[in-house]
Simulated assay, not measured.
Amino acid sequence: MTSSSETVSFGYEQVSPEEKTRRVGSVFSSVARKYDIMNDAMSGGMHRLWKDRFVRRLKPRRGEHILDMAGGTGDIAFRIAERGAQVTVSDINPDMLGVGMERAEKRGIHGLIWSEQNAETLTFDDAAFDGYTIAFGIRNVTRIDKALAEAFRVLKPGGRFFCLEFSTTEWPGFKDVYDAYSHHLVPRIGQAIAGDADSYRYLIESIRKFPTMPEFRAMIETAGFRHTRVEPIMGGLVAIHSGWKVS
Rank of each mutant, 00 (worst) to 15 (best):
R139Y: 15
T222H: 08
L97G: 04
V89A: 02
G45N: 02
G111W: 01
G25K: 14
A119K: 08
A70G: 14
V230A: 13
G108H: 11
M69I: 10
P157C: 14
D40T: 12
A70C: 15
I204V: 15
F54T: 07
Y202C: 10
R48T: 14
L148M: 09
M1C: 03
F152I: 05
M69Q: 08
K34V: 00
R61M: 13
V186F: 00
P60H: 11
G235R: 07
N118W: 02
V186R: 07
I80K: 02
E18V: 13
V8T: 08
R53W: 13
I113S: 06
G108F: 13
V246R: 15
T121K: 12
M42W: 07
L185Q: 10
T212C: 00
R57N: 01
E82R: 15
F124I: 03
F78D: 05
I233T: 04
I134D: 07
K51I: 08
S29P: 03
E19K: 12
E170S: 07
D179C: 00
S115D: 13
D145W: 13
S182M: 11
G235E: 14
G111M: 00
H65D: 10
A197G: 02
R53L: 15
G25T: 03
V15F: 07
F10T: 08
E82I: 10
P94Q: 09
Y178E: 04
